[in-house]
Amino acid sequence: MFWASYFLAALAVILAWPVPVLLSRAKWPARSPFTAMVLWQSIALAGGLSMIGAMLTWGLEPIGDNLAQGLSGLWNILLQRQSVEALGLVHVFAISAAVLLTVHLVFTLLLTYYRIVSGRRRHRDMLNLLSSPSLNTPATLVIPHPSPVAYCLPGGAHSVTVLSDGLMDILSEKELSGVLTHERAHLSQHHHLLLWAFAAWRAALPWLPTSQLAQRSVNELIEMLADDEALKKVDRPTLIRAVAIVGSASGAGADSAAALPGSSVPAVAGGGREDETGMAARLSRLLTPQPPLQRWASILIQAAAVLLLAVPTVLLFAPGLIHA
């Protein structure tokens, strides 16, 4: 377990800095956003597991040859009031840090969920006052707003797509169909859950630059996934025009901003806030489409993502795999 803690620490450092930076700068994710999304999730989970695991395994090393033995020894110390001298002050500090980091991550995840749900509830209440149901499209609300606005509001069976009357006046029937398909893809593919997880990661570790990189990349990827779904419904020029019109609403992409009069509810929709760089990348991808990754490359990357998550799991939980 002594060596396992060092391997986990090294993996945590690699996943905290060079790997996310390289992935955020790579060009291939735009060719296979689903594969890139799987890899980002693996990096986040494996990085958190490695950080906590490195401190925990190193802290428990004096009282066990593997994690199970170490936790059993810690249980005896805590509940049977055995002496902590076998651990030592430094190892007690490492165990405490692992526990505190775990509690911090879980608490931030729950707090972020509460804030998002509360924001959606307030937003829905305002929609009930200011919007009216679409006469032609089910599960769609129309708000009186001159800017071209489109976004979705998750809520299980009560999920809705919100359009402004200004947008409906501008778009053609085909363009509107592309926008609706895009927004419904956010809901059907549960993109709001991904945004919740990565928003919590950034909130929990704001000092980690790569948490911001990850959130921005995931925001872009979910927009690309929704665009790909829309392309099954409308042709590419039609979608490009629709995206450009919706993106012009705020200059930073109104696709997912909750642009109700007198309200500001960030990141409550199915897609995340999209900055000018993200909108430019999205339009560039639509204007100059690249061939998708070959199947073998996509499978290889997804297999690497699974392996990346398996390594810290095995180091933590496989009894007696690595001895001091």
Rank of each mutant, 00 (worst) to 15 (best):
R285S: 05
P312Y: 02
G178K: 13
R295A: 14
R120F: 12
M1A: 12
P29L: 02
L195C: 06
D165A: 02
W58M: 10
R241G: 02
T181I: 02
A305C: 06
G48H: 12
M224S: 07
D235A: 02
S188M: 08
A36C: 09
P312Q: 01
L23H: 06
R273Q: 13
M224K: 04
M51F: 15
A254I: 00
S264E: 11
A226S: 11
W17M: 05
P312I: 01
A297I: 05
H191R: 06
G155Y: 01
F317M: 10
S211H: 08
H190E: 13
L109Q: 11
R236E: 07
E229L: 01
N66G: 07
P209N: 08
R25H: 12
R121Q: 13
L79Y: 15
L111C: 08
F317V: 13
S217C: 03
S263F: 00
H191E: 12
A36S: 12
L127P: 01
V234A: 01
G247S: 11
D169G: 08
I301P: 04
V265A: 11
L286A: 09
S284R: 08
H91E: 12
L315N: 10
G247F: 03
A303S: 11
P33S: 00
L45I: 15
L208G: 13
A4F: 01
A54L: 03
H145G: 01
I240D: 03
A254W: 00
V234I: 02
G119M: 06
G53W: 00
V142S: 05
G178A: 04
G271V: 01
E220D: 11
T210G: 13
H182C: 07
L87K: 10
H104E: 15
T161Q: 11
G156E: 07
D275M: 05
M126Y: 00
S263Q: 06
P209Y: 11
I52M: 07
R124N: 11
L321N: 07
L205G: 09
G59D: 13
M55F: 09
E85F: 02
A199F: 12
L74G: 07
S211C: 13
D125S: 14
E183A: 09
A310T: 03
W207T: 09
V117A: 09
H123G: 13
L153Q: 03
V314T: 14
P292H: 06
H191M: 03
L105Q: 08
L101N: 10
L110N: 15
Y113L: 05
A86S: 11
